[in-house]
């Protein structure tokens, strides 16, 4: 058991390094990709600035607090993208019948599919989010204690697993419906955008939904309350500590769903 896991992990790294080298072949595209992502997020940040120009605050959140909330989500999304972003296009492999090759190799299909791409474009996310977190940290005069740094790391770890878990769950849908990419763009992408703004602007139903069903609130909003020293009338502050644990449970559930789908997978080929 342990041996096969170790072998799987070393194989993962081998394939990842191949993927990185492949992407570095096209240097111009590689740099443009990174800059493109960074600029997309910078664009959203500018939109937020324009939004708050006439209004000042959004439910008590000033511009730099909003930026922090947004950047925290982008940071863990960046990590998540590296490992899981290509899961959304699982439907392509199933429809074309190329998914079968993941089943006949001496490595766990989930690992194999995961190792297929290591998206270096995500460095654009890091570029934006690290700069944005640093800027808001200094503009808001934050001085985090050691435990707050732990909350921050926990949020990145938990956020990666929560968003990665959802990508895995969406890709699992392809086993039943042969559609996943579309589902990502129609459901997850807008939902992710919703979370760039403080949760309290939305109705109670949505708040409960993103805390207890699709735990997006643990990606950025709940940890940000702790990290920015804000309080909420409806949510206990300690919830922000739970991000890593929620992430692990949620990811495990999504992984089980994926395996369930895999077991009923029938090849599209003849």
């Amino acid at each position: 058991m342990v041996e096969s896991w170790l072998r799987g992990i070393s194989m993962y790294f081998y394939m990842v390094s191949a993927s990185i080298r492949a992407q570095l072949q096209y240097r111009y595209a590689f740099i443009m990709n990174i800059l493109g992502w960074a600029m997309t997020y910078a664009g959203t940040a500018i939109t937020m600035w324009v939004l708050l120009y006439s209004f000042g605050t959004l439910e008590g959140w000033i511009f730099w607090e909003l930026i922090f909330l947004f950047a925290l989500a982008v940071l863990s999304w960046g990590v998540c993208m590296i490992f899981f972003f290509h899961f959304r296009s699982l439907d392509q492999y199933i429809v074309n019948g190329t998914f079968d090759r993941f089943l006949v190799r001496p490595i766990h299909p989930f690992f194999h599919f995961m190792a297929m791409k290591f998206d270096v474009g995500a460095f654009g996310q890091f570029l934006f989010s690290i700069v944005a977190v640093a800027l808001s940290y200094s503009h808001l005069n934050l001085h985090w204690q050691a435990w707050q740094w732990l909350v921050f790391l926990g949020a990145v770890w938990g956020g990666t697993l929560i968003q990665g878990g959802l990508l895995v769950a969406i890709s699992a849908m392809a086993f039943w419906t042969t559609r996943s990419e579309r589902l990502y763009w129609v459901v997850m992408w807008p939902a992710k955008n919703l979370m760039n703004y403080p949760l309290t602007i939305y109705p109670r139903v949505i708040q409960l939904l993103v805390i207890f069903v699709l735990p997006f609130a643990f990606v950025n909003y709940l940890p940000a309350l702790l990290l920015l020293g804000k309080t909420s009338q409806t949510m206990a502050p300690f919830w922000g500590f739970l991000s890593p644990f929620v992430g692990m449970i949620f990811f495990w559930l999504c992984f089980r769903l994926w395996m369930l789908g895999l077991n009923r997978y029938k090849s599209a080929g003849s």
Partner: peptide, 28 residues
Amino acid sequence: VETGGVEDIFYFAISLFSGSVIPLWFFP
């Protein structure tokens, strides 16, 4: 061949300056 970064600026310009989500009268 690769319009990556330019494309993102283009989309951003369209979304902000077209007033698709924020009307121009709220702009500085």
